[in-house]
Design a protein around this nucleic acid. Structure first.
Length: 275
DNA sequence: CTTAACGCCTGAAGGC
DNA sequence: TGCCTTCAGGCGTTAA
């Protein structure tokens, strides 16, 4: 479900709800999100821990606790955190997989329809695997046109596929890659290694521009995404190509948006703007 | 090293 | 109404 702006919206919401709170107990309704970790170990690890910080790592959410322990969550397609000040005061949601109970009666429920989401736990001195495998954040200073040209110099696949690769840059997904390439006026099928220095600069600028704007609107809600407060994002009305196949391009108003398949995912682009 | 294909899951939507 | 196919803000694994 979520990409950088949505995850950042969730992280900011979580900070407002759970920072400084102590986990009194944990209820696991489904073990799949825990992966190989036994349910008892998961609960024992988290019980009596106090939430010290919530940070975004690409599309991951990093919870750190006062003891130095860590929990890293990836929401994948349909993962969602729902915060409640008091238990049982809302109509019950389906597909709740885990509930965290805090010392002040508030709860954080984790919902995941498709069960793709993952939770992993790290002791204070363990190396967090996710940090090793991720490319830099789109807003990191090290991302410059020369850096990007070097990063893609051996990549003969499409620019679209490379931008979806979290080992290159972390945080982008299908919506914002489509939207950024549209704003940069580059065809998504262009081989990554063939881009010019000028195009590299345009890509970086477009990525940052579209992410900042989406963040301002609390992300994009197409079907599943909602913030911790259960409010939807508002960026969807500013999408220029994503899920607009057959509709007139909002940028040029001359051609209609096309949909193609790349790496088993839908790509949307304007054939007039992105020659 | 790189790439494409497959699998993991559930539910909504569209075609017939 | 029902059945079948396709689709969905993702990514780890596998095989070439």
């Amino acid at each position: 479900m979520p990409e950088l702006p949505e995850v950042e919206t969730i992280v900011r919401g979580l900070r407002g709800c759970i920072l400084g709170k102590l986990i009194r107990s944990v209820h696991v309704f489904h073990k799949k999100p825990l992966g190989p970790l036994p349910e008892k170990e998961f609960k024992d690890f988290l019980c009596r821990e106090t939430v010290q910080a919530v940070e975004r790592l690409g599309k991951y959410i990093h919870f750190s606790f006062s003891s130095g322990k860590n929990m890293i969550v990836h929401l994948r397609m349909t993962g969602k955190f729902i915060f409640r000040f008091k238990p049982g005061s809302f109509h019950p949601a389906t597909h709740i997989r885990i509930i965290f109970y805090f010392n002040d009666q508030s709860t954080l429920s984790f919902q995941d329809i498709r069960l793709f989401a993952t939770f992993s736990l790290y002791l204070p001195h363990q190396i967090i695997k996710e940090k090793q495998n991720l490319g830099p954040d789109p807003f990191a200073k090290e991302i410059t046109a020369p850096w990007f040209l070097d990063a893609v110099k051996n990549r003969k696949t499409s620019l679209k596929a490379v931008l979806l690769d979290q080992h290159v840059i972390s945080g982008l997904g299908n919506i914002y890659v489509c939207e950024a390439l549209h704003r940069a006026r580059i065809h998504p099928n262009l081989s990554a290694y063939k881009i010019t220095p000028s195009q590299a600069g345009k890509i970086i600028n477009s990525i940052r521009k579209v992410l900042k704007l989406a963040l301002k609107y609390n992300g994009t809600t197409i079907r599943d995404f909602n913030g911790v407060d259960n409010k939807s994002g508002r960026f969807q009305r500013l999408l220029r190509v994503y899920q607009r196949a057959g509709k007139l391009c909002k940028t040029c108003r001359k051609a209609s948006v096309q949909r193609i398949k790349q790496a088993q995912r839908s790509t949307f682009f304007c054939p007039h703007c992105q020659s």
